[in-house]
Design a binder for these strands. Structure first.
Lengths: 229, 229
DNA sequence: ATGGCCATACCGAGCGGTCGGTATTGACGC
DNA sequence: GCGTCAATACCGACCGCTCGGTATGGCCAT
């Protein structure tokens, strides 16, 4: 297989968010991780339902069953809730991608797995993806840029696979990796708009369908079509 | 060609927003259409840049070069700005679709034209599409539902074309019209994320590429592929 | 008895929207 | 063609309210 650059060390960044320092000789009441987690969960729900700006921190603490004091004890600002949600999501996505890219698959098989993973995790974490696409720009410029960088690297990973497949003849060269990748990402980004858990297709089934669409679109052995118009 | 239901009379609705009643005997200072237009234009710019909630009425009037009084003279509420922007856009899209559907093309040619039109108009009106996807849910329930209905009818028009093509053998039956349509809409919805006016591809070029991708994905004469994994 | 955890009361800023007032016009009697 | 009137166009100070965020202090495990 062709050389594909690994998508950076996300493990370090994960270590930059430790559960808590806990400096050996500790005093006072112990932290309650459930409080912090319930705040994040409530924020995610509400952000997905109403949007970031339309959700007040009061609504968040009410749904989480805590008070404002608790929220501002664990988070310095409302924006931090957004950032943490994104950070977790992107870290997982990047880790998944890295695992697939370093497993020695040929480009077609790797792309197949990436699409499968992307569709399934998107559906699993639909609220995050909803908020991600809509409210990411509400973060401060610096944080926004950092997340944007990761997301860009993810895209480049996918495009690298398409390019590699085009080089070795597995994929047609009739389209650019950019356009093809946006067909994939556009599809997954649209999942929050229409996916119904009780619909006829399972997440894996949707992934399979997208894979077959992509496979057909990139098929190099297609008979010469008579393009109309 | 198979029967395709026309997408409703949008002309009537357009008539429901006349330039102004003007009951013959008119008094007082004449309206200045430029003021109203500049308010809408400023609102669209700012909504696209920052989002609806993050944009204050004050910012709108400053950019439009008018005062708050002028804005609330022409619009009853901030929400009306959003609605008017959406209404115009959807009316045009529905009109375009209706024209293509009633022109007697076969399904493949009609789909080709719809995609071409959708891509080009999306790029032409990128700010509207950006706001449309992000902030449509900020409208009151009734208005939201009305727009959603139109947008649903647009989708059904496209799916009807795919279904018709599958019936007469032009398109492969390996995928559902729903999934295929979301590949198309997902792609166009993602245009605001990456389209650059000074990029290498023209709007028409992008439309052509998407058309060829869709054509390949729906090709019924594809040789049986050896699906891996 | 100390220090981290959290509840409560509260703050200033900024929000969408209003309202009394003024400027500007066309219609109309003359 | 000219003054008068009525209706519209617009101005900008202001209002009630909610927002994100903070200050303070009681509580409780260590």
């Amino acid at each position: 297989m062709t050389a594909i650059p690994p998508p950076a060390a996300t493990a370090e960044r994960a270590a930059a968010h430790p559960q808590r320092p806990v400096p050996s000789g500790r005093r006072g009441r112990p932290a309650n991780p459930a409080v912090r987690a319930s705040i994040l969960a409530a924020a995610l729900e509400l952000f997905a339902e109403q949007g970031y700006d339309a959700t007040s921190v009061n609504e968040v603490v009410v749904r989480a069953g805590v008070t404002k004091g608790a929220l501002y004890h664990y988070f310095a600002a409302k924006e931090d809730l957004l950032y943490e949600i994104y950070r977790d999501h992107l870290d997982q996505q990047m880790a998944d991608l890295g695992e697939i890219l370093t497993s020695g698959h040929d480009p077609a098989a790797a792309l197949h797995r990436v699409i499968e993973n992307l569709v399934v995790t998107t559906i699993t974490r639909l609220p995050v993806v909803t908020v991600f696409g809509r409210d990411m720009s509400r973060l401060a410029a610096e944080r926004f840029a950092a997340l944007q960088d990761d997301w860009r690297r993810y895209q480049e990973g996918v495009r690298g696979l398409i390019r590699a497949g085009q080089r070795d003849g597995t994929f047609a060269r009739t389209t650019t990796p950019e356009l093809a990748s946006w067909m994939i990402f556009g599809f997954t980004n649209s999942l929050p708009l229409w996916y119904q858990p009780d619909g006829p297709l399972s997440p894996a089934g949707i992934a399979a369908e997208l894979n077959s669409l992509v496979r057909a679109a990139l098929d190099p052995n297609r008979p010469e079509g008579k393009e109309k118009q």
